[in-house]
Write a protein that binds this DNA or RNA. Structure first.
Lengths: 149, 149
DNA sequence: ATCCTAATGATAAAATTAATAGACATCGCC
DNA sequence: GGCGATGTCTATTAATTTTATCATTAGGAT
């Protein structure tokens, strides 16, 4: 399960992806638009900046912008930064493997082997979907919605 | 990420799957064999029993057994019982959907749409893999291991 | 220089969830 | 009835997540 941090982060990134490139958004603005506690969002965007996914500018006319085009930002990357590894279990993670302290014989651990499959499945989705895809999905869903009305 | 509860539960189920069908295992035995705190395992097996995945018998000669054959127990089921929904976000869950309180327009929520894909990918793996598969994996990994030696 | 704006950082409080322990009840067999 | 096992209930501890408070730093405009 994603934490709220992860969810908020994704929403904030979506928000940024929806602005004309280069035009910064204020944290307060993003927070208000997405029902996110402003201060929490501050730290979230801070982490995303440290990870090189967004840029920030202080002072008047400042705010946050995407560091790259939305096409070049993968959903999996955002989630790893905010919520940690995608794998259901650390010994099945590729980007941040760690041995289980319990678990005598890792090679013969069925749990791990199944979780490797799961990790693969998750990563295949999340590392191939970009912010741009996500945004396109949203607009499409939106359109279907208004069409029905 | 799985919690320890989930991981311990899977390991315990593997343990049961490895016994001749019908022959009960003691909690103490399973706990010792897998480095699981006995009391914690008690409650885990309790939940698995309530979910109908294992049977228990008290008194001498008692213990836990699988409620069905290992081929008929899906990994996804075990995880759902112990750790909750597979979906990365509740509004993307099929078995226990819940709306996000934030999120004005669910239809047009890109995050949700991508997470629906992710959920699908995860469930495809975990709902098709059974305890028996997991055990087969383990034996195979084990074999490769000893082969290398 | 000074003032306003906005991000930054450090810290800590509150809330939630996860992980474990203990004591006692219950059940079933011999 | 006594022993060997699970079952239940409660409490405690630890870890993590979420939010709030307050002070700081940097940039731009006047």
């Amino acid at each position: 399960m994603l934490t709220k941090k992860g969810k908020y982060g994704l929403k904030a990134m979506m928000h940024l992806a929806g602005r004309p490139p280069g035009e910064p958004s204020l944290v307060a603005e993003i927070a208000a638009a997405n029902d996110i506690p402003k201060k929490f969002l501050d730290t979230i965007l801070g982490e995303l900046r440290n990870a090189g996914l967004v840029n920030s500018k202080k002072g008047k006319g400042g705010g946050y912008t995407l560091a790259r085009s939305a096409k070049e930002i993968r959903v999996g990357h955002i989630i790893r930064v905010l919520d940690g590894p995608l794998a259901p279990i650390q010994c099945a993670s590729k980007t941040s493997y760690r041995r289980c302290d319990d678990c005598r014989d890792e090679k013969g651990c069925g749990v791990r082997l199944v979780m490797l499959e799961a990790r693969e499945a998750i990563a295949t989705v999340l590392d191939n979907r970009t912010l741009a895809d996500m945004r396109a999905f949203a607009l499409q869903g939106e359109a279907e919605f208004t069409y029905i009305i």
